[in-house]
């Protein structure tokens, strides 16, 4: 039975929570004593469409409504208003059918059984998801090979390193070949090689199987490496929805140029679109807007200024602002910071 591709349509999603203002853990004199309530609007009209076979990053500062959106999309939570369809199903209304077609990985939480060997956990998941035995074997062997799990299959999960565990979690979420994979902070706490391995695997999966991937993360390098498109959520609204490069260009388009001389840096009449950032001894740092001045023209101006003062421009590097800078600038601009 072919599973329809996972086109996600989210329309005007609202979610209001009612929470007890007094901490639920503080002792109360009476078990059912009245509590004071406060409402929180976690989502106030979120809409987007995700096409099958794409990788989309869902980002936003803590408390912006990301995890509420993820919970609704995965069928755990029912929204207060709005409409969602994932591959034609309404997640919360048709929970069992819906969750059978998605795979979810929480970076902070394990779905494997602590005391069971990895293999035993996989077998239990096969039964939970009703994967036919022959299809399961083929699928498991492929995942074990691509994720390099062969050596840890008979180890109890509690003995795995975090990196090994995360690879096992990915395999566990994909045993039933879901057309949609939801990753919630999949690289949190991982070392650099493990992060790279997770990213490479997700990319490969998307390319070869056409799996739709929805990803939330605080590691912007995940976004840069994987997501063609980012949806930024803040204060329960969609603040931006565009390819990452567009977000970068509209937020922080500037470049940073660092010039080094073999003597004291020469004074320079700054061309249009260039701002001095710092100057110290033989090093000069400038910011410039490539839309107003081409890098070649700026370097030429630097070189001739050096010539005039009898020094040599010995080294030049041009960098783009880091992705963290772009995002925090974006959050600041929308007053959405953490």
């Amino acid at each position: 039975m072919p599973i329809p591709p996972a086109r996600i349509v989210v329309e005007d999603l609202h979610k209001t929570y009612r929470i007890a203002t007094r901490a639920a853990t503080s002792p109360r004199p009476w078990p059912f004593a009245r509590r004071a309530w406060r409402t929180i609007e976690a989502l106030r009209g979120v809409s987007f469409v995700i096409e099958p076979g794409t990788i989309t990053g869902l980002i936003g500062p803590n408390g912006a409504g990301k995890s509420t959106a993820i919970k609704i999309l995965s069928g755990i939570l029912r929204p207060s208003a709005g409409h969602v369809s994932v591959g034609g199903l309404v997640p919360w209304a048709d929970r069992i059918r819906h969750v059978g077609r998605i795979g979810v990985v929480f970076g902070q939480r394990s779905q494997l059984w602590w005391d069971l060997p990895v293999e035993g956990g996989f077998a239990l998941l096969r039964d939970i998801y009703r994967v036919p035995p022959d299809r399961y074997r083929a699928r498991r062997d492929r995942l074990v090979d691509t994720l390099g799990l062969r050596d840890i299959l008979d180890q109890p999960v509690r003995q795995l390193s975090l990196g090994q565990r995360m690879r096992a979690e990915l395999a566990a979420a994909l045993l039933h070949a879901p057309p949609l994979l939801i990753l919630d902070e999949p690289t949190i706490g991982l070392d650099a090689p493990s992060k790279l391995a997770v990213r490479a695997f997700v990319q490969e999966l998307n390319r070869t199987e056409g799996t739709t991937v929805l990803l939330t993360t605080h590691d912007m390098h995940d976004i840069e490496a994987l997501a063609g498109r980012v949806i930024v959520i803040g204060h329960g609204r969609v603040l931006a929805d565009s390819p990452f490069e567009t977000l970068r260009a509209t937020t922080l388009s500037g470049r940073r140029l660092t010039a080094e001389f073999d003597g004291p840096a020469p004074p320079l009449l700054l061309p249009d679109g260039v701002t001095p950032l710092s100057q110290g001894g033989q090093v000069l740092e400038l910011g410039f807007d490539p839309a107003r001045i081409a890098a070649a023209d700026l370097i030429r101006a630097l070189a001739s200024a050096a010539d005039m003062h009898g020094v040599v421009l010995s080294d030049v590097s041009i960098t783009r602002p880091s992705i963290e800078e772009v995002i925090s600038r974006f959050y600041e601009r929308h007053g959405a910071a953490g």
Partner: peptide
Amino acid sequence: TGEFDRILLRPRWTVLQ
């Protein structure tokens, strides 16, 4: 622990799980 979310993420009856 929030483990109940995991129960809801699996395509089986909650009571059985």
